[in-house]
Nucleic acid binder design. Sequence first.
DNA 1: CCAATCGACTGATATTAATCAGGCGTTACC
DNA 2: GGTAACGCCTGATTAATATCAGTCGATTGG
Lengths: 364, 364
Amino acid sequence: MMTILLIEDNDIIRENTAEILELAGYTVHTAENGKIGVERALTDKPDLVICDIMMPVLDGYGVLHIFNKNPQLTGVPFIFLSAKIERTDFRKGMDLGADDYLTKPFDESELLSAIEGRINRFQNVRPQPEPSAVWPSPEYDRSGGPATARWLEQFMNDARQVGNLQSLSTERKAHFVRKKQYIYSEGDEPTRLYFLKSGTVKTLRSNAGGKEFVTGLYNPGDFFGYLALLDNSDHTDSAVTLDDVELIYIPKVDFQQLLLADPAVSAQFIKLLAGRVGEREEQLLGMAYNSLRRRVADTLLRLHGQQPEGIIQLSRDDLAAMIGIATESLIRTLSEFKQDRLIEMSASGSIQVMQPEKLLRSNW
Amino acid sequence: MMTILLIEDNDIIRENTAEILELAGYTVHTAENGKIGVERALTDKPDLVICDIMMPVLDGYGVLHIFNKNPQLTGVPFIFLSAKIERTDFRKGMDLGADDYLTKPFDESELLSAIEGRINRFQNVRPQPEPSAVWPSPEYDRSGGPATARWLEQFMNDARQVGNLQSLSTERKAHFVRKKQYIYSEGDEPTRLYFLKSGTVKTLRSNAGGKEFVTGLYNPGDFFGYLALLDNSDHTDSAVTLDDVELIYIPKVDFQQLLLADPAVSAQFIKLLAGRVGEREEQLLGMAYNSLRRRVADTLLRLHGQQPEGIIQLSRDDLAAMIGIATESLIRTLSEFKQDRLIEMSASGSIQVMQPEKLLRSNW
DNA sequence: CCAATCGACTGATATTAATCAGGCGTTACC
DNA sequence: GGTAACGCCTGATTAATATCAGTCGATTGG
């Protein structure tokens, strides 16, 4: 339901008015002066504001001034309430940007119709519906999480059906690469996009000291190596196979053609990348202020959701490089988790998260 | 320039008023009754309508009724003009959805400030989505660094020249926001893109413990707040002003239209985002394995390149939150750098990098 | 004008996680 | 079949950095 913020210093009028509004079915928040009103507006985000003009601490004009300046508040319909019926007072209020002006005393119907009038007006003025024709919120569901690009597979099927990019066809030869092989290295010029048919691939960056940070982990059905292609720069990371894999190569030109041919694709890529930026910034935040234990837990949970069957099969070194910690520290933390029955480890070293809820919630 | 439609049956008042408006720089179309007014509104698409109430053929209420029903007309600011000063007349007009109500006789300043008031109000509130036409894709400078979006400015100029997205025009009102104000907060639904005209803005994320990590720093000429718009999600960061700033709002719909109208633009955005992903991953690598000293040095160098004049004017708290370390640690490191003559600090706390080469090379 | 607040800074201490060193079991290989 | 190599793990030590507690000076507000 609509939330209305009522700012009025007179206790009787305020309570009376609030009661009327509540009877009419609105959720009402009240404030007894302008300052409190603004504070409440910022926290409650009302759908409409009714504000008296003459008030102590901060008057109605001041409140509206602040509303106009604060981007979070500007869009909210604003109705002045005043005992003054003089034309100049009215004009001052309107010129400041009020949307209606009610004079006291008013009766119920005046109040309610004024509110309805403004709500209707603003709904007309501010079209709610997503411009879906413009912004494809597509059937390409981003189910694989922002890190993966499974929707591209779907897209490629479509592209194939249209038949204008034959080189994308699945008849393409699969390339077999054995484990622990570099697919491309930092500094290489990108020549193609990779589609992972089977196996696992990690992408990593390394620093001057030879330490590695794993930036991505790819499973069958994922594409990788697109960052440098999109950025039109050299690879800034390396891709390494974790086990024996089957790859399909999509030549750079084909990919770029694809990208330009259909606006929906570029829109999808924009979405994908924006999501990835957000994810990385989140990680950065965690890296800065979360304890090692917390970061291990977060990474395990992320993998738990991504990995098939929820079983994490990854060497301790790689896992540590994903989290950005020393391998020993990871192992110690895993042991602790195991003791707490939060995870289980098999003889082969694979990890299974047993109590994701508890792992998520426990705060150190 | 803004086009105003004036609907008024009295010849003298109509011509007189039109003259005033023209002198004020508006393009004015007139109509001598409601019927003609509506017809003219449909063909001319005015930016604002001033309409008398008592008129032959079709009165003002009727005109507004039609405006409310016709989607093409609903978004236009509508001001009533009337000789009636009775409260009930005023309320009837407002309840019908008028945006202001001027009583005759009025003087020039009343008229003009009422018009300005509504135009400003509507720029805050609404984007009226114009049907997009595709314009020739211009050549965009690719030199702008990945962190900034200055090329968008160039693009917007082009868009303006073609003139089909008027709402992007520089005539847009600047919004002033004082320092330390939130422009948007984590979790807010994005409603617009922000263009920073003057001042400085930071974007930050905060974790459960209330700690903040500064993810971006924006200078005049930058755009910000686009991540959530592109991702089609809620804001995952907050934007806060560091000093008094001037902002220009670009409504969500306008921006999205813009983005899809021209493949060159989406291509630019893809590049921008891909670059930002790379940057963030680089930061992540540094965060994991570089010493605090190294990270401070890197951040200083980054800011040295970005900030105008190379002078870094930033509170210690914000700088620490950018690097992701404790404020005290930062201050200690800065003191060390100062002792080593790598940087200089003014009394006001601003930092200047003196020997970028040495700062870059020294390896700890 | 004084008190309160804030930002820059310093010293002492506590905590965390990296590093070093090594054990133990399994696999790979001559 | 022996041994070298490797992956997983543990203990002790050490280095790095956060935290706590406060000073000092400048600015702000009543």
